[in-house]
Write a protein that binds this DNA or RNA. Structure first.
Length: 558
DNA sequence: AGACGTTGCGCC
DNA sequence: AAAGGGCGCAACGTCT
């Protein structure tokens, strides 16, 4: 059963039941309290809600105490469908989708919230509709149209699966942002004090950093050098006759100079202080929880992004501040070697699938093609997926081509498509954006009159960059889909328990639950991974093992 | 002072 | 022959 819903400003809204094709199948229900009306439908047997944008509309429903079970997010789906049609930049608001359907003038999308002074958080998602157009009618019509567009795509059902997973994950993302990750401010503060010294007054360097800065200046002969300024550091090395392209750690490590150890230590601690220090703690952790905002579909490949707090880049060191509540545990699950497994399944390469049928895929590859040398097998496969071939990787790639021709042809075809400016798609149909301006300009100049060798080189260079992007896109995008389905399935399986989904990062998920529930949750995760494998790839022999650890601290889960 | 691009590094 | 994917964030440095 499907029910379309729009908020009408304030607490009110409109609802209407739809049939399977998205056609109205009941009267319009005007609800003065939308939350209460939605809750009634949920209790009566949860429908699939058709709504404009979960990210905008779900928070106020949660405020009203309503949890949605299933939904279809029109804006997320519109983005997928426009992308598939090669229309990445097209406006995707409800008003724009409606205008395309009805032949009206397509309005530009509103300015992204992050660029606005006052984010329009509480504006109904259906806002911006032209006067005289019923937003409920627009929602209904756009939904029916999206059903048609999805059904017209081959292979059948894949885009529907992707839209369903993306929509379900949009619900999960809002819920996770609300619940937050258990975070012990005292443990975090203890860690900072241990590594940086006592907290300094605002603006001052922590004691350990101040000491290191002095040692650095001393190593350069006593003349003050600001380690926070790469330009200053480069100048200091230049004065000593050492030319450096940049101050990146991996370059510094190769330099023989008394300042280097202190500089490396400074960089590491400074990073901790500025990115996840006391300021971060005060800004992002409240009442024992870190509450980031997740952005579903925020990355072109379909990975999530996050806004604020760097939720997807939490350094390993601070994970010891992530501690379960008393009597509760963290069930930490991550999919090992997800991307190479995805390549094996996606390409249908039987030999690679067999190698991926064991717990350690790289070991499987090594046995079959690299004389048991796991490190070389890993380097080879990473080069194939990312497009790199530094050092001796070219020879390793040749081995892969010989032993796994189907998989290699798959990634090479994606790379060629990219170099030629064509689009590639993930397994379920998420489509890469078209080439950017730099690519187009480089190709135009190289193909035009008066093109010189320099222009040719630039065009080849841009082509390769684009090829590396599309080569990786099909794998990263498909891996992201597998993870979306796992998360959506896991959310379903945890519904009705008091277990909390608290973290999701590309191929890793954390559930916070009572200790007694840990075993059940573990089974739910492994079951969800298996469901994701089946829904994506049917009866592929490729395994997608999930490593599950039950721990009180995140840092103990590895 | 604020916008913007660059640098460098954290995560996958 | 050569070819290293995707992000967010903070600080610096330059420009306006």
């Amino acid at each position: 059963m499907w029910v379309a819903v729009v908020s009408a400003g304030g607490t009110g809204g409109l609802l209407r039941e739809l049939d399977a094709a998205g056609k109205p199948a009941g009267p319009v229900e005007a609800a003065p309290e939308l939350g209460a009306a939605v809750a009634r439908w949920e209790r009566a047997g949860p429908p699939r809600w058709v709504l404009t944008a979960v990210a905008q509309e779900y928070p106020s429903l949660l405020d009203a105490g309503v949890r949605l079970d299933r939904c279809h997010d029109l804006l997320l789906t519109e983005a997928l469908l426009l992308g598939h049609a090669g229309r990445w930049g097209a406006p995707r608001s409800l008003a724009a989708a409606w205008a395309r359907l009805s032949g009206g003038v397509v309005p530009d999308d509103p300015v992204p919230a992050s660029r606005q002074l006052q984010p329009a958080l509480f504006e109904p998602a259906a806002a911006g509709m032209p006067a005289g157009v019923d937003p409920l009618q627009a929602v209904t019509a756009v939904y029916a149209d999206q059903r048609r567009r999805m059904a017209a795509l081959a292979p059948a059902g894949r885009m529907r699966l992707l839209a369903a997973a993306e929509s379900a994950c949009a619900l999960a993302a809002v819920e996770m942002g609300r619940v937050g990750m258990p975070w012990r401010a005292d443990a975090h503060d203890a860690l900072l004090s241990e590594l940086l010294g006592p907290r300094p007054v605002a603006g001052a360097r922590p004691p350990r950093l101040a000491e290191l800065a002095e040692r650095i200046s001393a190593a350069f002969g006593g003349r003050p050098v600001n380690p926070d300024s790469p330009a200053d550091v480069l100048r200091a090395f230049a004065r000593e006759g050492i030319a450096l392209a940049s101050t990146r750690s991996y370059l510094l490590r190769e330099v023989e100079h008394p300042a280097v150890p202190a500089l490396l230590a400074y960089k590491e601690l400074s990073r901790l202080h500025t990115a996840h220090g006391w300021n971060w703690l005060e800004t992002w952790v409240h009442e024992g929880r870190f509450r980031p905002e997740y952005v579903v579909g925020g990355v072109v490949t379909g990975r999530w992004a996050s806004r604020g707090g760097g939720a997807l880049q939490i350094p390993r060191t601070v994970r010891r501040a992530v501690v379960a509540d008393p009597g509760w545990v963290l069930v930490v699950a991550d999919a090992g070697q997800l991307e190479p497994r995805v390549l094996a399944a996606l390409s249908g390469d039987i030999a690679m699938a067999e190698a991926a049928g064991v717990d350690d895929l790289y070991e499987g590859l090594a046995e079959r093609a690299f004389g048991g040398d796991r490190a070389r097998a890993k380097l080879a496969l990473l080069s194939a997926m990312y497009g790199g071939a530094t050092g001796g990787a070219a020879e390793l790639l040749a081995i892969l081509h010989q032993r796994f021709p189907v998989a290699m042809a798959h990634v090479e075809a994606a790379a060629r498509a990219g170099e030629e400016g064509r689009l590639v798609r993930s397994h379920l149909g998420r489509t890469c954006p078209p080439p950017g301006q730099r690519w187009r300009e480089a190709q135009a100049v190289a193909g035009g009159p008066g093109a010189d060798a320099e222009a040719e080189r630039a065009a080849v260079q841009r082509g390769r960059e684009r090829g590396r992007f599309t080569r990786n896109f099909i794998i990263q995008g498909t891996a992201a889909e597998w993870a979306l389905i796992l998360l959506a399935t896991l959310r379903q399986r945890l519904a009705g328990t008091d277990a909390e989904l608290v973290f999701f990062q590309h191929d890793e998920v954390i559930v916070h639950c009572r200790r007694e529930l840990a075993e059940e949750v573990t089974e739910a995760v492994t079951g969800a991974a298996e469901a994701a494998r089946r829904l994506m790839f049917g009866d592929t022999p490729v395994r997608f093992p999930v490593r599950v650890a039950v721990a009180e601290r995140y840092s103990d889960a590895k």
